[in-house]
Design a protein around this nucleic acid. Structure first.
Length: 431
DNA sequence: TGAAATGTTGGGGCG
DNA sequence: ACGCCCCAACATTTC
């Protein structure tokens, strides 16, 4: 039996500039890329048409075909990773497993178990930084602690980025395991069906990024990058993206830094998934009215900007960033519903769902996060229209019945809801 | 990357 | 010419 080196793909679904693959090809022989449809994750998905699964499947197919052209293959398995690796270790003579680090709590635990299993069988397990430019301990303040304020973190990040820009590198594909193609499973074989939702193409539109700071706040223009899902599943290299945009638009680069800031915070403190960054905010007595929550989910609050956003999300798996802030402010402040409810709904619906960013941004909206700005930040859904959708273009696109008698009246009055939120936060924080 | 309330200033209309 | 009021525009404070 030939000795092989496995490169385990997870959230790095590309062959270009992939650190684990580069390392595997550099240090190993007969490199076989594999992907495991992890039933621990898939079983949690309610929707068997989940677009994210289609996205992954589609990308894997591309990778498989590219590998076939190199006389190799992608090996796709289905099951619990531990079981899969047990089986693989019997099927193959495995020298080592290379993979890129995934920082989420489930992934960390899974990888630890896989490592123990493999090392027990004398198989080395190597993991690499790939998903971020800087790992959690690479950007630290003068006291050697991790930053808790974005601006300070960003300045440090930028300085280090400019001092030693990341390198783009491709693997030596000659080292791939040469084989006839191994059958590639269809979506149905893993219990899913293709989505009808359209998936954003992978392209870096330089002109769009160059004017990002001027256009990004107008949802009708739809001038955000839609690259979130590609970052989520690693179909784009963060190094390549950051290098390309660095000179084009600082505001856009900042968004990438926010991503790493939230990942870094969560890495240092897994508690943030369930708890407010500022613990006194866990005292807020959320109203958590189930009926109002349902109206928010469905886009039937009677506030056109909120409803437009939620309907866009429900229909497309995407919501414009400006509108995400508005609906989040509305849920937490106007309705006084726990930010974790909103976070969970976004997690279910967003194609570009990313635990750290979702959590960080929801905490930002709820006022419980790292941001110094306190809870007073309450968006006025009406004036947000005046500022960012004056012609009602975005609103009308998603809420065509707006202005007719079929459109519901507001479920809460803005002025009194605002005052209620202020009062509730104030007394919770004083207690 | 908030909005409302309150304060300040200055120009114009008008007696 | 002057004081007064009104109000818009802007600045600051407060929630």
């Amino acid at each position: 039996m030939k000795k092989i080196t496995i490169c385990w793909l997870r959230r790095d679904l590309r062959l270009e500039d992939n650190t684990a693959l580069n390392q595997a090809c550099q240090n190993g022989q007969n490199v076989l890329p594999i992907f495991i449809f992890d039933t621990n994750i898939l079983d949690e998905l309610e929707d068997k048409h989940d677009a994210r699964v289609t996205f992954i499947h589609k990308q894997l197919k591309n990778i498989h075909q590219a590998l076939i052209k190199k006389q190799s293959t992608l090996l796709v398995r289905f099951g619990k990773p531990l079981d899969v690796f047990k089986m693989l270790s019997e099927e193959f003579d495995i020298e080592a497993v290379y993979t890129n680090r995934d920082y989420e709590p489930y992934a960390t635990k899974r990888d630890k178990e896989v490592r123990v299993l493999l090392e027990g069988k004398n198989i080395s397990f190597y993991d690499f930084k790939d998903q971020v430019i800087f790992d959690k301990d690479e950007i630290l303040n003068k006291g050697g602690k991790h930053y808790k304020v974005f601006t300070a973190y960003k300045n440090d990040w930028l300085q280090k980025f400019n001092e030693s820009p990341p390198q783009i590198q491709n693997a030596d594909f000659q080292k791939l395991y040469k084989t006839t193609p191994i059958d590639f499973p269809e979506l149905e074989a893993i219990g899913f069906s293709p989505t009808s939702i359209s998936l954003p193409p992978l392209e870096i539109d330089k002109e769009k990024i160059r004017v990002y700071d001027k256009t990004r706040n107008y949802p009708a223009l739809d001038k955000t990058s839609h690259l979130g899902i590609h970052l989520r599943f690693g179909t784009i290299s963060i190094r390549k993206l950051a290098l390309e945009v660095a000179d084009l638009n600082q505001t856009f680069l900042n968004e990438l830094i926010w991503r790493e800031f939230f990942m870094m915070l969560l890495c240092h403190n897994h508690r943030l998934i369930q708890r407010a960054f500022k613990s006194q905010y866990d005292k807020i007595p959320w109203r958590n009215n189930e009926e109002e929550f349902q109206k928010w989910c469905k886009g039937k609050t009677g506030y056109p900007m909120v409803d437009a956003g939620m309907r866009e999300l429900n229909k497309t798996g995407y919501m414009h960033n400006r509108v995400r802030m508005i609906v989040a402010s509305f849920l937490t402040k106007h309705l006084l519903i726990d930010w974790r409810w909103g976070e969970a709904y976004f997690a279910k619906k967003l194609l570009d769902y990313e635990l750290a960013s979702n959590n960080g941004n929801w905490q930002w909206a709820a006022g419980t996060g790292t941001d110094a700005q306190p809870y007073f930040r309450i968006f006025n859904p009406e004036s947000q229209i005046k500022k960012f959708d004056k012609e009602l273009e975005y609103v009308k696109k998603w809420v065509p019945e707006y202005g007719t008698d079929r459109y519901p009246s507001p479920i809460v009055d803005h002025k009194s809801a605002r005052e209620r939120a202020l009062k509730t936060y104030k007394s919770a924080l004083e207690s």
